[in-house]
């Protein structure tokens, strides 16, 4: 920061004597370092992964353009994509519900709000891998709850079960705290009076929720929800630790192939990566289109 700020103020002094104050700061160039860095990572990464998926960077042998990597796991790929979407969708929905409720309670202040705010800050900074390990210790067949309830054989298949409950729980748990804090943060910067005015005007609890609080938090809810969705859609470690071997979510499948010892599997892993990225980008664009329709946005 210092260098560019120095630059900024120097030019400011130069023009301060002039008639116009506008060019006090140099303009768009300030964003250049960030733009370059992101271009390298996002642009470079996407280009290289696309090249690998198309067989242009094989481990051995000569490069040859081919779509073979995309068709090698046809059926599993579709099933995996569906599974990933279902896991990410369900957990995001739960995270938004819980997170929004938490935000409302946090907004109320008092000890209730403080308690919820404090508790939710516990889970936000934890790495997902830690969240996954903790979820396992809590919900597995021999986990804490199964021990406490003495369930033994009767314990349901939560970890590694057919409905991916533990995986969804972990994402919902961690992302709900994220959503809650983001929404509470936005609500805090909005005028509080809306709700009080509405209450004074006699609007009931539900009406205030529907007509005041929900519209006010909708943009923040959409943004944090989308971030949570894309994150859980493209994240590996939780499903790896708490999932079952088949069917596999896309990132788990991609990492298995990436780490697989057969030499053809790297392009296949890259192909799954390309598809995951495409779906994520699509989700982001859809969310953006919805956001544009919300009048409060900007």
């Amino acid at each position: 920061m210092p260098e560019s700020e120095v630059l900024a103020t120097r030019s400011g002094q130069r023009t301060a004597a002039g008639p116009s104050l506008k060019p006090c700061m140099p303009g768009v160039l300030l964003a250049v370092p960030a733009v370059v860095l992101v271009t390298v990572v996002v642009g470079g990464g996407s280009a290289m992964v696309a090249a690998q998926s198309l067989g242009l960077m094989p481990l051995v042998g000569r490069p040859e353009l081919s779509a073979a990597a995309y068709t090698a796991h046809g059926g599993d790929l579709l099933v995996g994509a569906g599974l990933s979407l279902a896991i990410a969708g369900t957990s995001t929905l739960l995270a938004c519900l819980v997170g929004f409720t938490a935000a409302l309670i946090i907004m109320q202040g008092r000890w209730c709000g403080k308690l919820v705010a404090a508790m939710s800050t516990l889970s936000v900074p934890l790495p997902h891998i830690v969240g996954a390990a903790a979820t396992g210790l809590l919900l597995a067949d021999s986990g804490l709850l199964a021990r406490v309830f003495g369930a033994a054989e009767g314990w349901p298949a939560i970890v590694g079960g057919p409905w991916w409950v533990a995986v969804i729980f972990e994402y919902a748990w961690k992302e709900s705290a994220f959503v809650g804090l983001v929404v509470a943060g936005t609500l805090a910067t909005r005028p509080v009076d809306y709700e009080e005015t509405a209450a004074l005007l006699g609007a009931g609890r539900l009406r205030r929720l529907r007509h005041v609080l929900l519209p006010l938090s909708l943009p923040a809810l959409m943004i944090s929800g989308t971030i949570a969705f894309i994150y859980s859609f493209g994240s590996y470690e939780v499903a790896w630790l708490l999932g079952r071997p088949y069917p596999e979510p896309l990132p788990v499948m991609a990492l298995r192939l990436y780490n697989s010892v057969s030499l053809t599997s790297r392009p296949e892993a890259a192909a799954i990566g390309v598809i995951t990225a495409a779906v994520s980008l699509g989700a982001a664009l859809v969310a953006l289109a919805f956001l544009r329709k919300i009048p409060l946005w900007r």
């Binding site: 271009t39 990464g45 493209g234 991609a254 390309v274 980008l281």
Partner: peptide, 23 residues
């Protein structure tokens, strides 16, 4: 610029890493 700066949110990290690792 803002679209680009927010692009990492839409690109799962493992995908970027698959590509970048070689680079």
């Amino acid at each position: 610029v803002s679209a680009l700066l927010f692009a990492p949110l839409a690109l799962p990290a493992f995908v970027a890493v698959f590509g970048l690792n070689v680079l």
